[in-house]
Amino acid sequence: MLNIKNNIGYFSKEAKTILKLNLASNLLSIFSVGLILFILILVATGWFISNEAIMKIQSEAEISLYYSEELKAAEVTVLAEKVKATDGVESTQLVTAEEAYSQMVEILGMDAEVLRHFEDNPFSSYIEVKIDIKEIDNVLQQLNTLVGVDYIRDNREVLQSLMDIEKALRLISYMVFIAVGIATLVIVTHLIRSGIYNSREEIITLRLLGAPESFISIPFVLSGLLLALGGGFLAILLSTGVLRLIYGQMLGPLPFIPLPDQGRIISKIVTLTIPLSIVLGVAGSYFGLKSAAES
């Protein structure tokens, strides 16, 4: 019954008129929705980056196996072979005390001076073991049963802390997501109600002429959609600007943090924000129309 194709121009014009009727208020609302979505994007991006970093760290998970100093070179080689044959171990590499010293010099950089205060090399030889992080418990249990193993450093505390941070960020993201959703819905609902109030005479006339409710509603749904999308685009602009700034600041002094590709994050931001704006715009309009009809 409703000829949407023939009326696309009319609906767009009506939506524009609805927005124009309260231009200042609508612009402020777009700004508010933009800021709210911006907060959501920041939190979601923080969670995404930390998640990516943890995944990368986990994929490179390695443990250090220190063996008894009494072992001879041939026994160490045999031990390394046994370690390599353990389930969950991906690769092994023998690191001599000298290599361990050199690695630390590299890590400390300018601060490597401190190592010169030692008379002897303070580092011991060890076996570097790359493992599947999911198998860490099993691997540790098996390695501890091997003869000649003195001590295993598993870095589990560091990994656990990172995983805790990721969990907390995920929880915060969910909570912000819910808060942002409700705030945006309230703003759009209120604006649609105001729009309906401002256009009440026109709505009554259309009803008296026999217009279906869907025909009357479409311009309001469109205006709600435009409001939320406007806010969404503003949030994307703000967040990409902030992201560039943060990346610029972090890549220099903190090169060891494995940050995901910036372009990929921006594409994720767009993919999250646009559909979310559409859903919130339509849902807000629906609630606005419903509450206006009820009152």
Binding site: N3, T17, E201, E202, T205, L209, G210, A211, P212, F215
Partner: peptide, 30 residues
């Protein structure tokens, strides 16, 4: 039923800010 009736209201109920043609077309759009 209302679509089969042509109402002429006391205060016209024309939509302000629109042309005569747009007002007449509005009654036909649905």
């Amino acid at each position: 039923l209302r679509r089969r009736i042509g109402p002429v209201f006391q205060e016209f109920r024309l939509i302000k800010g629109r042309t005569a043609l747009e007002n007449v077309m509005m009654g036909l759009r649905f």
